[in-house]
Amino acid sequence: MPQYLIYFNQQWVGDHDEAWFESRVEPSTAVVRDMQDQGVLVYAGGLVEELEEAASADATSGELVVTDGPFAETKEWLGGLTIVDVPDDESARRWAGRVAEGCGWPQEVRRFKAGSLQALTLGG
């Protein structure tokens, strides 16, 4: 089956108070439990928001250079991701919708290129 990435940029979350975020815990974890129960969940998780905790690795010059911080300055950055293993685009979009409802902010969904997850599936 194809695998899909469901993700959001941190800026899509919006400004909310602590109570609002606490109200999203149960609905969002319920979606993850449903994914687990239906056997479609590969991975789900949020990323640390502090960009100063990021590091970048670049070998395009022929030499590996690892630096602190994000690779490029940008106005948006990845906030979290979910990987699902489902039969088709329609199923992936349905799960992306469930994640969006559970979290309370938009999600984008994209199919992985064929063969791009070989390392995970062969080694796992």
Score class of each variant (00 low, 15 high):
101 E>S: 13
24 R>K: 15
112 F>T: 03
40 V>C: 06
25 V>K: 10
11 Q>T: 12
44 A>N: 12
39 G>S: 03
28 S>R: 14
44 A>H: 09
59 A>L: 15
122 L>A: 14
6 I>Q: 01
74 T>H: 02
31 V>F: 01
56 S>T: 15
93 R>M: 12
104 G>T: 02
15 D>E: 15
68 D>V: 00
35 M>N: 04
110 R>Y: 01
65 V>D: 13
3 Q>M: 12
63 E>F: 08
105 W>S: 00
114 A>E: 15
26 E>S: 10
68 D>M: 02
94 R>F: 15
107 Q>M: 15
90 E>D: 15
58 D>I: 07
22 E>G: 10
80 G>M: 00
21 F>H: 10
51 L>Y: 05
96 A>M: 03
72 A>F: 14
2 P>A: 12
121 T>H: 13
20 W>P: 07
41 L>F: 02
57 A>E: 08
36 Q>T: 14
93 R>A: 07
90 E>Y: 11
124 G>K: 13
35 M>D: 07
78 L>D: 04
63 E>L: 06
7 Y>E: 14
65 V>F: 00
20 W>I: 06
89 D>R: 12
28 S>C: 14
97 G>A: 05
23 S>C: 05
111 R>E: 07
42 V>I: 11
56 S>R: 09
3 Q>Y: 02
105 W>R: 01
60 T>M: 09
2 P>T: 07
8 F>P: 00
122 L>I: 12
50 E>Q: 13
116 S>N: 13
123 G>N: 13
35 M>A: 15
67 T>R: 10
17 D>L: 06
52 E>R: 11
6 I>P: 03
118 Q>H: 13
51 L>I: 12
56 S>W: 00
61 S>E: 01
39 G>M: 05
96 A>V: 04
96 A>P: 05
69 G>A: 01
46 G>R: 05
86 V>Q: 02
89 D>Q: 15
49 E>C: 08
9 N>F: 14
